[in-house]
Design a binder for these strands. Structure first.
Length: 795
DNA sequence: GCGGCGCTACTACCT
DNA sequence: ACAGGTAGTAGCGCCGCG
C-alpha cells in the first residue's frame, strides 16, 4: 500500500490514452508521481421526458467516429434538481473528445441538455475518486519506477484505483516551500519587458536559507539570472512556490523575459512544460503548487492598501518600522547608484522574508479550504468565494447522484434585501449587541430553501413553508440540496469546534482545527449570496429573495419580542440588534428567540457607551475593556486621508470617554494649525482610491481618475483594481485638475486649505456637530486667508 | 460668467 | 466573478441673474 499526501492532479495523453498524474508526497517528504491510465472522461445527456433512452443512446453511439471514438453510452439513473431522471453517460476516449461531441449530442432529438461536459478531466478524477487535495490517502500501486520525463525520483502506477482516506493523519508532511520575489529595472515607470531586465530575484526556502540572485550590467544582464533562478528551483525542488502578486506580475514578467532571452523557464516537475496561465488566472507550475499569497491578502478587508509591507505589518510578520523601504518608482535609481544598491538588496531580502512569513499565516487556512472544496491549493486562492462554494457543491452533488447544472448567462435580476433600522441618534449607555448566529444559512435550513424544493403548484401550509410577503412555497420534506449541504457544513463545524476544546490554543492541533472551522464557516456563509449570484450554476433568485424576506420577518419579530420585554431597541442591521443591556431581560430575550423562532441569537459585545448620528451603518462604541470601535465612519475608510482619520478617531475617543467636547475642539484646532504650518507630512495627506475600470471608460473626470491619467502619462500602467494615491495641490479649477500622484507633489505645493475644509473639518464635525460644535468653533484663521488668496490668484 | 441646486457617478463601507 | 442597503464626495448640467 502506498501512503501519500495529495498535492494536485493533472493529466497527459499518451497516444490515445489519457493518463491521470497524481502529484503527491510520501510520509518522509519524498515527492512522487502516481499514474492512473484506467480513468476515462465522460459527460451526460439529459433526456426529454418522453424520449426512449435506448433509442437516443443508439443515436449517440452512431455519432462516434473511428478517429475519435465514443467508448460507451450507458443509460443511467440520476437526479436533477432533486427529481429522478434518466440520463445517458457518454464516455469518450480522451478529454478532447468530450468537447468534440457535446454540441452534436445536444442537438440530437430526445436530448434536453448536455451536462457536466465542462468539468475538467483532472478535477473529474478527484471528484469521482472522492479525493481531496491536502489530504492523506492509501492506494494499491506498483513501483517505484524511474521515468526521465518527470523530475521526481519515484513514479508509481495505480493497480487498484480505490483510495482509502487516512483521517488520523491530520498534518501535512514536511513540505518544501520556496518563496520568491523579483525586482525589475524600471527607468520608464512601468517596466517594459522588451527592454528592462529583471535585476534581483530573492529566494527563501523553508529551511530558512535566503539567496539573492542579481543581474549583471546591461539590458540583457538577466540572462544568467534567469538560468540561476531555474537551477535554484530545480535543485531545491519545492513542493510549494509562494510569492506576492506573482500571478499579476512576477511570473508573467519572468516568462516574457525568458522568451525574449531564449531561456526555457522549465521549472516544473514535468520536463519541457513551462509555467502557464490556468484556471482562475493563476499560473500553474506542473507538479508543484504555485500559490499567489496576494489572493489571500485581498480578503483582509481591514488592510486598505494591500502592498506586501502593509500586509506583513498587519499580520505581525514584519513590522514596517523594521524593514527597508524603497519606493517602487525608484527601484532603478537604487540599482544604478552603487551607494544605494545595498539598500535595494536589503529591500529584496525583506520582501522575500515577508512573503515566507505570509505563507506561514495563510497556507494553513488555504490547505483546509483546499481539502474541503477539492480545489488544489494553487487554485483555491485564485478562485472567488462563489467558485469555492460551487466546487464544494459539485462534490456534494456527485455523492448524491445529482447532476450538476450548467453555467448559463442570465440577466441580472435585483431583489429586496435586508432591513436596516433607523438608529436612535445620540449617546447610549450600556448597550448589548445581539447577533443571530449564521442567520441566512439557518433560515435556508429551517425553511428548506433551494431550487429543488420550490413548489409552483398548489401546496398547503401543512406541506409547504409559505414565505411571508412573497407567497413563494417550499416543500418541508424531504430536505433539499442546499439544506443537506448546509446541515453538513454546520454540524461539521460544530464538531471541529468541539474537538478544538481538547487542545491548548497554542497547539498545532488547535490551530489546524481552527483554520478548518474558519473554512467551513466561509463556505456556509457564502450559500445565500451564491444562490442570488447570476453566475452560479445553482442560481435561484426566488430562493435568495425568500431568504431576505424571512430575514426581515425574523428581525421584526425579534424587535417585537425585545420591546415586549421592555428592552429599548437602539439600532439593528440585517441580523443584529442593539438593545439596552438589562442582563436578565436580555437573557430572557435570548431564550424566547430560541423558543419562538427556533434560531440562536447571541450577545456579540456590550458597549459601555455607543454613539450614533442619524446615519445608518455608522457608529462609535466604547467597549467594556475601554477600546473604541469605529464602524462605518471615515476613520475606517481607505479613501480618506490618514490625518482626517486620525482626527476623527481621536475626537471620537475624547467625546466618548470624557463626554465633553472641549478637549476635542482644542485638539482639532491644533491639528489644523499644524497642517497650516506645514508640519503634517505628505504621507498623511494622500487620498487612496481604487481604479475599477479602464480609464477611458469613466464617464466623469473624478480626482482619482485624473491622477491615474497623470500616472499613465509618466509611463506607469494603471490596471483595473490598482489603487491610486493622490494629493490635492494649490491652484485654480476643480479638484480633479489639481489631483496629482503623491510622488509628484512637493510639500510646498499642497493645497492645505483643501485638507482643512474637505478632510479634517468634515471628519471631525461628523461626530462633533451632534454635540452642537460648529465649523466656526474649529476654524480660527482659515476663511479670511483663503478668500484673500483666491482674490489674489484671480487678479 | 458664476454660484446654487439637483442629479449622477463613483467608492467604500455594513451585515 | 457571493447578495443588497447605505453614506458620502465630486463632477456636471442647468437655471437664474437686469
Amino acid at each position: 500500500m502506498l501512503r501519500f499526501y495529495l498535492l494536485d492532479t493533472s493529466y497527459e495523453v499518451l497516444g490515445k490514452t489519457p493518463v491521470v498524474l497524481i502529484w503527491a508526497i510520501k510520509d518522509d517528504g519524498t515527492p512522487i508521481l502516481i499514474k492512473d491510465d484506467s480513468f476515462r472522461p465522460y459527460f451526460y445527456a439529459l433526456l426529454e421526458d418522453n424520449a426512449d433512452a435506448e433509442e437516443v443512446a443508439g443515436r449517440v453511439k452512431s455519432l462516434s467516429r473511428a478517429a475519435s471514438p465514443i467508448i460507451s453510452v450507458e443509460v443511467v439513473s440520476r437526479k436533477y434538481y432533486g427529481k429522478p431522471v434518466k440520463a445517458l453517460k457518454i464516455t469518450t476516449q480522451i478529454p478532447e473528445y468530450v468537447r468534440t461531441y457535446r454540441e452534436e449530442v445536444k442537438s440530437l432529438k430526445g436530448v434536453k441538455e448536455v451536462l457536466e461536459a465542462d468539468i475538467r478531466f483532472a478535477m473529474r478524477y478527484i471528484i469521482d475518486k472522492d479525493l481531496s487535495p491536502c489530504t492523506w490517502y492509501e492506494v494499491e500501486a506498483e513501483g517505484p519506477f524511474k521515468d526521465e520525463k518527470y523530475r521526481v525520483e519515484e513514479v508509481y502506477r495505480v493497480s487498484n484505483p480505490v483510495y482509502k482516506p487516512l483521517p488520523e493523519k491530520k498534518f501535512p508532511p514536511k513540505l518544501k516551500i520556496l518563496a520568491f520575489d523579483t525586482e525589475v529595472y524600471n527607468p520608464a515607470g512601468a517596466p517594459r519587458s522588451d527592454k528592462d531586465p529583471v535585476i534581483i530575484v530573492s529566494l527563501m526556502n523553508s529551511k530558512g536559507e535566503i539567496k539573492l540572485l542579481t543581474a549583471s550590467e546591461g539590458p540583457k544582464g538577466d540572462l544568467e539570472l534567469l538560468k540561476e533562478f531555474k537551477d535554484y528551483v530545480l535543485t531545491y525542488d519545492p513542493d510549494i512556490i509562494v510569492g506576492y502578486n506573482t500571478s499579476g506580475f512576477d511570473w508573467p514578467y519572468l516568462l516574457e523575459r525568458s522568451k525574449i532571452l531564449g531561456v526555457k523557464l522549465d521549472v516544473g516537475r514535468v520536463k519541457n512544460a513551462p509555467p502557464r496561465t490556468s484556471a482562475y488566472g493563476h499560473i500553474s507550475v506542473p507538479g508543484r503548487l504555485n500559490v499567489d499569497l496576494y489572493d489571500f491578502a485581498e480578503e483582509l478587508y481591514e488592510v486598505k492598501i494591500k502592498s506586501l509591507d502593509e500586509v506583513a505589518d498587519y499580520l505581525g510578520v514584519m513590522k514596517k518600522s523594521e524593514r527597508t523601504h524603497v519606493p517602487w518608482y525608484e527601484i532603478y535609481r537604487y540599482w544604478d547608484d552603487p551607494k544605494k544598491r545595498e539598500t535595494l538588496l536589503k529591500y529584496a531580502r525583506d520582501d522575500v522574508v515577508s512573503t515566507m512569513g505570509l505563507a506561514d499565516k495563510f497556507l494553513p487556512f488555504a490547505m483546509q479550504l483546499s481539502s474541503l472544496t477539492g480545489l488544489p491549493l494553487d487554485q483555491v486562492g485564485a478562485a472567488s468565494v462563489g467558485f469555492r462554494l460551487e466546487w464544494y457543491l459539485i462534490r456534494a452533488a456527485y455523492k448524491s447522484k445529482e447532476l450538476v447544472p450548467n453555467r448559463v448567462e442570465r440577466p441580472y435580476e435585483p431583489y429586496k434585501g435586508a432591513i436596516v433600522l433607523e438608529p436612535i441618534k445620540g449617546v447610549h449607555e450600556n448597550v448589548a449587541v445581539l447577533d443571530f448566529s449564521s442567520m441566512y444559512p439557518n433560515l435556508m435550513i429551517k425553511y428548506n430553501i433551494g431550487p429543488d424544493t420550490f413548489v409552483t403548484g398548489e401546496c398547503s401550509d401543512d406541506e409547504c413553508h409559505i414565505i411571508p410577503g412573497l407567497g413563494y412555497k417550499f416543500r418541508k420534506e424531504p430536505p433539499g440540496f442546499f439544506k443537506s449541504v448546509l446541515q453538513t457544513l454546520l454540524t461539521l463545524r460544530k464538531k471541529v469546534k468541539e474537538e478544538m476544546k481538547a487542545y491548548p490554543p497554542d497547539s498545532p492541533e488547535y490551530r489546524l482545527l481552527n483554520e478548518r472551522q474558519k473554512a467551513l464557516k466561509v463556505l456556509a456563509n457564502a450559500s445565500y449570496g451564491y444562490m442570488g449570484w447570476v453566475g452560479a450554476r445553482w442560481y435561484f433568485r426566488e430562493g435568495a429573495e425568500a431568504v431576505t424576506a424571512l430575514g426581515r420577518a425574523t428581525i421584526m419579530q425579534a424587535i417585537r419580542i425585545a420591546k415586549s420585554l421592555g428592552l429599548k431597541v437602539i439600532y439593528g442591521d440585517t441580523d443584529s440588534l442593539f438593545v439596552s443591556y438589562d442582563k436578565s431581560k436580555v437573557e430572557e430575550f435570548i431564550r424566547r428567540i430560541e423558543k419562538e423562532l427556533g434560531l440562536e441569537i447571541k450577545i456579540d459585545k456590550v458597549y459601555r457607551r455607543v454613539f450614533f448620528t442619524e446615519a445608518k451603518k455608522r457608529y462609535v462604541g466604547l467597549t467594556e475593556d475601554g477600546r473604541i470601535d469605529i464602524v462605518g465612519f471615515e476613520a475606517v475608510r481607505g479613501d480618506w486621508t490618514d490625518i482626517a482619520k486620525e482626527v476623527q478617531e481621536e475626537v471620537a475617543k475624547i467625546v466618548l470617554s470624557t463626554g465633553g467636547t472641549r478637549d476635542a475642539i482644542e485638539y482639532v484646532r491644533n491639528v489644523i494649525k499644524e497642517l497650516r504650518s506645514g508640519k503634517i507630512p505628505i504621507e498623511k495627506l494622500i487620498i487612496w482610491k481604487s481604479i475599477t475600470r479602464r480609464l477611458e471608460e469613466y464617464s466623469v473626470d473624478a480626482p482619482h481618475v485624473a491622477a491615474a491619467r497623470r500616472l499613465q502619462k509618466m509611463g506607469i500602467k494603471v490596471d483595473v483594481g490598482s489603487k491610486v494615491g493622490y494629493v490635492v495641490v494649490k491652484g485654480s479649477g476643480n479638484i480633479s485638475s489639481r489631483a496629482y500622484p503623491y510622488m509628484m507633489v512637493k510639500p510646498s505645493d499642497v493645497d492645505v486649505e483643501y485638507y482643512v475644509k474637505h478632510q479634517i473639518l468634515p471628519a471631525a464635525l461628523r461626530i462633533l456637530s451632534y454635540f452642537g460644535v460648529t465649523e466656526k468653533q474649529l476654524e480660527v484663521a482659515g476663511k479670511g486667508m483663503r478668500t484673500l488668496m483666491d482674490f489674489m490668484k484671480k487678479k
